[in-house]
Each structure stands twice: as C-alpha cells, then as structure tokens.
C-alpha cells in the first residue's frame, strides 16, 4: 500500500475525506441556492431557464458536475464504511445508555440525517435533473431561441405535488441539523481548532445551517402559497 492509500484508508484519512467532501458539498449548496434565487426575479422564469440551460450545457460546469458526483459519492461511500467500522468497534451494546446532556442528538445521528437527505436527493434528482437531461420537456422561447422550461417544472411540482414539498421541507430541516454539526466538525477533523477561531467557525456553521435550508425552503412555500401557474 502506498502512503496515499495508507493515509486515506486510516480512520483519520476517512474522516478527512468526509470533511473535505462535506465542505465541498456545502460550497455546492451555496452556489445552488444562489442560482435558484433567480426563480424570484419576476421575469416569468426567463433568467432561471437561461441559467438552467447554461448549467447543463457549459463544458466546464459539466466537468465540475463530475466532481460534484464524486464529492457526493465519496461522502456517502466513506460514511457507509465508517458506519460499518464504528458499529463493528462495539459488537455488544449497552443495556442502558444515557447520553451526556452536552452531547446533541443530531451529532450522534449524522448517519440518519444524512440518509434521509440522501433519500430526498434521489427523489429530487428524479424530479428535476433527470427530466431536464433525459426527457421531453415543454419549451419556452427566450429571445427567439427555444429553452427547456425548468421554471415551469419547478413551479408545477411545488404547487401540485404537496407530498413533494413536505418531503422537501423535512429534508431541509434535517440538512440543517446535519450542517449544524457537520460544518464545525469538518474543521476539527482538518485539525483547525483554536481558542480564538472555534467560536467563529461554530457561528458560521450555525448561520449556514439556518440560512441554507431556510433559503431553499422559501421556494416550495413561495410556489405553494403565492404563485399561480
């Protein structure tokens, strides 16, 4: 085993993978949310559809998309390996277990929150990404050119499919908790721990864990209540 595989397959190496991919995925969420805010431009979806088109056709973005896929893949795959390792580390559990009050429930259940978010992610891809790439879609004309009407799809799903919006909101809530622990934890795993900066990192983590899900959550709420197709 070379030193690289040796490092990456150690417990600390695997945690490093979790941390780096986790932070990368956070950056994706930020970009994703910023782009999605084009839904609110009030131009009947023109900008959003142009953006969607750009995102799915630009070569560089397509390359980054592979990176994103890898990021998700490594994050999920490593998590599953770690989960198996961790449960193997305690083959017989306690008859009674009482967690210290300082330890949050979500920090102990990252696997669960992550799995629910993953489930949502798959549904999300089936609903938006898959049709956009591989199915016939209604088209709209923008400055004389036909574009796939992603805006219409978003508006319709959030407006018509109530179960989807509910799932979306639950997943966002869990994503929030996942980020709340995960963000600061990622920095610790990278070894970034300092009296002066810990509270700043935790503060940013808290903000991100509220702002990102909240930002995404405005979308189903907006289309559900305030938007008529």
């Amino acid at each position: 085993m070379s030193w690289i595989t040796n490092t990456l397959t150690s417990t600390l190496g695997r945690k490093l993978s979790m941390s780096l991919t986790g932070l990368f995925l956070v950056s994706f969420l930020i970009v994703h949310l910023s782009g999605n805010f084009l839904l609110y431009k009030g131009d009947g979806g023109e900008a959003f559809n142009l953006y969607s088109n750009f995102m799915s056709t630009n070569g560089l973005i397509r390359v980054l998309e592979i990176g994103l896929l890898l990021g998700f893949g490594i994050h999920i795959w490593t998590a599953s390996i770690l989960t198996r390792m961790n449960s193997a580390a305690r083959p017989i559990g306690y008859a009674v277990q009482k967690t210290h009050e300082k330890v949050s429930w979500f920090s102990r259940n990252m696997g669960l929150s992550g799995s629910i978010v993953l489930f949502f992610l798959i549904v999300h891809l089936i609903n938006f990404w898959f049709p956009y790439h591989y199915q016939e879609m209604p088209m709209v004309d923008i400055e004389g050119k036909p574009y796939k009407d992603m805006y219409g799809l978003v508006a319709r799903i959030f407006h018509d499919e109530w179960w989807y919006s509910v799932l979306y909101l639950i997943a966002l809530l869990l994503l929030g908790f996942h980020l709340q622990h995960g963000f600061a934890s990622a920095f610790r795993t990278l070894g970034l721990d300092h009296k002066k900066y810990n509270s700043i990192i935790e503060g940013i983590g808290n903000i991100i864990s509220i702002i990102l899900p909240l930002g995404f959550a405005t979308m189903p709420v907006y289309f559900w209540f305030f938007h008529t197709v």
């Binding site: 417990t11 945690k15 193997a88 580390a89 305690r90 300082k102 610790r188």
Partner: peptide, 9 residues
Amino acid sequence: FGACTNTGA
C-alpha cells in the same frame, strides 16, 4: 477502535 464523530461525549 472506531472513528471520531466529534460528538464530544
């Protein structure tokens, strides 16, 4: 031994 999840327990 298992890995660290930074729960602080």
